[in-house]
Structures are given as structure tokens and as C-alpha cells.
Design a protein around this nucleic acid. Structure first.
Lengths: 136, 136
DNA sequence: AGATTATATCTTATAGTACGATATAAATTC
DNA sequence: GAATTTATATCGTACTATAAGATATAATCT
């Protein structure tokens, strides 16, 4: 069977375009990427951020400094190896990331509640399955 | 019935985090937003871009100038009203936007082909339905 | 003690973001 | 047809983001 990934992507981008948050955060491209990385990874340091964004370690260090100044990220030194840093999001950082990458929960709920239960459950199960495959 | 939109968003962001493109485009936050807006709207001018991004018209005009310089956007004057501008994406602009908002079609295809046909079809139909609801 | 690793800071350079003021040119109103 | 409105463009200015090389520091490993 041939799958129409082009059409699937059209659905995907339409959903995000129409259901995303209308926020007023002043946030840069790299800032969102770093926040995402920190949230999705169990434990991550400055070097791994640099590697992932494909920028130099000093650039990554500067980015993180700015995110800490904004109150979105916390830095902790590893107890085993005091050179290493563990990054994690603050509550505010989680909120900012949510507004910049998730679907608006009010809009989402309205749609789900307007659908027949089996359709809503299908959406839920489909995304669950796809996310599990995506994580390998 | 209560829907767990928080969990659904976790699936959503996991999917995008793991299946997005690893691109090397140097692109800013606002540039992606404007490209998306131009692609999703039938016809859009400078003023509407400004309104949508909630920036002043001169700022929007500057953004668009830069996108034109990069070869991602084309500007055409309306034939009915020569003051108005119609913006549209170039082929290259479409590609850049795709790499910055869509799911990697190779990764997506691999996953869909690894699933039972009814699961893949369910994913397809679920996203189709959700996108239709999102567009109203 | 010396090498390596992980991160931070300083300097410099370029691009992105934003807006007020002003300009232009087409369309509309009086 | 002169005055006004509308849509967009440009100029000047200011501040932030992005990036990397050079250098520094401090912990850990050999």
C-alpha cells in the first residue's frame, strides 16, 4: 500500500495552524528548540544542547544563559561530576513552551466534544499510537 | 465524557519532536509564521500579515522585503486595486516552510508501513477529521 | 602533575525585530 | 478635481538574537 504522506502533512499543518495558541510571547526560534529539547530529554547538559542544535558550545552556553535570565530554565550541577550541568524547565518555562508548541486546549476540547465519541476516541488512539512509534 | 487534552498534547508534541526534519535552514521565528500565513490563506497582503502577527505595518513590510530577498516570497499587485499586494510563496519558500513545519515524510512513511493497515488508515482518517474540524 | 572534559566569559560581527516618522501612489469622497 | 483615505514602502534608530573564535576556569581522569 502507498501512503499519502503529503496529504497527511497537510492535515498536520492545518491542525496546528488553526488550533495553536494566540500568544504574545517574545520568543526566538532557537529558544523554542532548546526548551523543547530540555523538556523531552530526561537529562541534558550544555554540550548536548550544542550538539543537537548544531551550534558551538559557547553559543549554546549563551543561549542557556539568556533562558535562565528569563526565568524559563534552571541549571543544576551534577552531584557525581561537578563539571556537568543538568538543565530543566521552570514552571514558567513549561508554560511558555506549551504556548509555543502545543494545541490550544480550549479549542481542542470544543472540537472533541462536538464529535461522536468513537471519532474522538479514534483521534486519541491514533495520536497515541503514532507518538509511541515516533519514540521508537 | 472528559477528554484528556493534556495527554493528547503530549502525543502531539512527541510526534513533532521525533518526526520533524533535521534541517539546516537559518530561519527566524517570524519568518516561519509569515510563510505559514501566506501558504494557508488564499490571498493575503502586507496589512493582513501585520494584523495577524500583531506588529506594525512597517515592520511587516520589512519582514516581507527580507523574505523576498531570500527568494521565498513573491509580491504581485492586485489588478483591481493597485495599492494592494498579493503575497505568495515561491517553490523554494514552500520547501523551506515544509522543512520547518511538516513531519519528515521518510520517517512518516516508515512508521505507516510498519503498522497494520487498519491502524495506518485510522491515523489518516483521524487527522483528516481533526483538520476539517479545525478549519471549521 | 599534566591532560582531558564540561562549561563560562569576552570580544566581535552580522542579522532579526520593532516602531515612529515620513513618503508615495492609488482609490475614494466631497 | 481637490482633499482624504487606504495600502504599502522607506528611513532612521535602537535593541535583541545568533554565532563563533579565543581564552579562562574548574573538576575529573590518567
Amino acid at each position: 500500500m502507498k501512503y499519502n504522506t503529503v496529504l497527511l502533512n497537510q492535515y498536520w499543518t492545518d491542525i496546528y495552524f488553526h488550533l495553536r495558541y494566540n500568544h504574545h510571547d517574545k520568543i526566538s526560534h532557537q529558544a523554542v528548540r532548546i526548551l523543547q529539547l530540555i523538556e523531552k530529554r530526561d537529562s541534558i547538559g550544555v554540550g548536548e544542547v550544542a550538539e543537537n542544535l548544531e551550534v558551538s558550545h559557547n553559543t549554546a552556553s549563551e543561549h542557556i544563559k539568556r533562558l535562565i535570565e528569563k526565568g524559563w530554565v534552571l541549571k543544576e550541577r551534577s552531584s557525581h561530576d561537578e563539571r556537568k550541568v543538568h538543565l530543566r524547565l521552570t514552571k514558567e518555562g513549561e508554560k511558555v513552551l506549551h504556548r509555543n508548541s502545543s494545541l490550544d486546549e480550549v479549542k481542542l476540547k470544543q472540537i472533541l466534544e462536538s464529535l461522536p465519541i468513537e471519532d474522538a476516541e479514534n483521534i486519541f488512539q491514533s495520536l497515541q499510537l503514532l507518538s509511541e512509534c515516533a519514540r521508537r
